[in-house]
Design a binder for these strands. Structure first.
Lengths: 221, 221
DNA sequence: TAAGAGGTACCACCAAAGGGGTAATTCCAG
DNA sequence: CTGGAATTACCCCTTTGGTGGTACCTCTTA
């Protein structure tokens, strides 16, 4: 990949995908102030955007989240499925936690808010073109909360479990069958079954698979 | 909880837990410049820290990560287990991703780096005392990466699977037994078993539990 | 047309998981 | 000291899961 796009080399090519023509115009004019950046294509919807990405192979794609029919997250997934390896920066008004998390999990290389200062946007786009992940500062707290919220407010309650039961949950979540758990803990398989039986009751789950899924999601390890 | 600690009310009480006496002295002197903040106790290790927290019930605990014997994360867990509901802000030199993520998952209300400007620290501590989560700006990118890293570079390969098999994996990862999967897909349980048999071979896994764990970690949904 | 992949369905067999019960030990708290 | 929780172990039993095999149908591709 060509990451010599700043300095003296050719400017970084950018594809704008946004259903709002006025905003595209504004962003384009702004970007043209910077000789290191160049808008090579625009699109107003997901399908055109994917096509344009495949045609121009831009260094950077600036992607709006809020679009009719196919939203930005879906568009991002489509791009990745089509093999587009451009850096994709989400550019949107939404500071909604779900959007941010979904975008990042879908493989976004950045998430910028539309209310940022123009100079700051240029700054961030240049950084992004160089391969840096760019995130609006305002989202820091939100990201931190997203990380820890995975641990809070879930279904079953771990507090009612005995130490032995928690230990066995970890081994179940590691994919071990009862026989191996027994060997590892130097107890009989029958005893392991007893513990499993008890923890299933306490957690109100129906099988060790549900236990494993729950434990993994809960980050129990 | 009393979150009237700024303005005219009594200053926010702070407990320092750090094994470095000089640093405690420095931070304390800094904090005393701010009439809204007050250091009410100090501790140089985890046990003393927990004891001090229980005794003084401070509004805010400033916690170092790098301590001998019992580290900051463990200390944080101990505090929570003892029922301490003070806001806990981690204050450390480590900008290591694992530390940040571990601290947040353990329930930290903030994560500040020791190299920050003194005024900035006071600023952040005041925010923290008011209930806001405070994170050093420098960690934004790191947090974003932590969120998406869950999705990259793992063992088995999903690409060899047929659409039907992927569909069944999702249902396994939802904790469903074969019988329910069959009902949901309107096929027989025997057929589901065939698919499960095939995908286990392809993924080189030994049981549906391993499939479920893998799928959840991989974010397949 | 033939070959292969994918999906469906059935069979039999054995291993694993889960539910019920009883019971011994230890250790802690009322 | 007595009762309960926790851990261990055993029993029997049913359900679920996983493996091997054969078979038929549809589509796509060589």
């Amino acid at each position: 990949m060509n990451d010599m796009s700043s300095e003296q080399g050719s400017p970084a090519s950018i594809l704008l995908i946004d259903d709002h023509p006025l905003l595209r115009k504004g962003v384009k004019q702004l970007i043209e102030l910077d000789t290191d950046l160049e808008v090579v294509a625009e699109a107003s919807n997901a399908n055109d955007g994917v096509a344009a990405a495949l045609e121009h192979e831009p260094d950077l794609i600036l992607l709006d989240l809020n679009m009719p029919e196919i939203n930005g997250i879906e568009t991002l997934k489509m791009l990745r499925e089509e093999g587009v390896d451009s850096r994709v920066v989400v550019f949107t008004v939404s500071d909604n936690e779900e959007d941010v998390v979904a975008a990042l999990k879908a493989g976004a290389d950045g998430y910028l808010l539309k209310d940022m200062e123009p100079e700051e946007l240029l700054n961030n786009l240049n950084q992004a073109a160089l391969g840096k992940m760019v995130i609006s500062d305002r989202l820091t707290t939100l990201l931190a909360q997203a990380l820890q919220s995975k641990r809070t407010a879930k279904g079953p309650d771990i507090s009612s479990l005995t130490p032995r039961e928690r230990q066995i949950i970890k081994l179940i979540a590691a994919g071990l069958p009862n026989k191996l758990i027994a060997r590892k803990l130097s107890i009989t398989e029958g005893t392991v079954k007893v513990h499993v039986k008890h923890l299933l009751k306490k957690l109100n789950l129906r099988s060790r698979v549900e236990v494993a899924v729950w434990a993994v999601q809960e980050g129990i390890k």
